[in-house]
Amino acid sequence: MTSATTPVVHTAGERRRFGSVVWHVGALAILAVVLYPVIWVVGASFKPSKDIIASLELLPTEPVWANFSGLADGISGISISSFFWNSLMYAVLAVAGVVLSSSLTAYAFAKIRFVGRNLLFTLMIGTLLLPYHVLLIPQYVLFRNLELTDTLVPLVAGKFLATEAFFVFLMVQFMRGLPRELDEAAKLDGCGHFRTYWSIVLPLSRPAIITSAIFTFINAWNDFMGPLIYLNTPEKYTVSLGLMMFRDQEGISNYGSMIAMSLVALIPVIAFFMAFQRYLIDGMATSGLKG
């Protein structure tokens, strides 16, 4: 509290406060732009179905609940919750598959020296470049021959077989960044690769695993093409397919309920993201950063 130090503290504090104001103004400005479309969608979900297409207003003039309350009746005799359940099953299985298979593969790439590793790694990275359309038809024929269409198997098989190269890559990079002393110590203790993987590397790779889980969940939840091609029974449809049932090219489309349902469909994704997003940065931290 001596008067001599006061002016110094004062100017530094002021500068910091000024910086803070600028920072918040900037962040808020970006926030406004980023959230405007989201608010529009929320607003639209309270507009009468007729007014949604080509409506210019951000918010409804007279909010209606009909779009949401209509969801309770289901669509075409199918309850909306069944779409959500199907999507959830798909997303959860996808996450489980990606986490298990990608971490196993990544462990091999990062921690085991075996013949042909570099070649396989190159092949794996190469699959990142493939547009998935090129594989769609041959894969469909395969699953049909196995009589597995109209099940979740074709949708999640690839996840359990580590075909999502990006996540394998992410985990490889992360595992390489782990202190080598740990798994060498494990080896000295007589741990085999599986023990090392399961008890040491896997728990330590949590950020990368959760990051992969987040992306997998979002991708599976939003996937349209896969369910469109493989699922036939409407009761097995995911949310993304269910949404299309509100559309009617020859009659009256129910855009109100469509937009309301797409909004409700956002909730699980947001919840999942919010729950785990704090790991996202750490999970990304080592991906591609080191040579």
Partner: peptide, 12 residues
Amino acid sequence: AGYLFMSPWIAG
């Protein structure tokens, strides 16, 4: 061990 760990990926 390497190929064992890689087997899901190889199959996929």
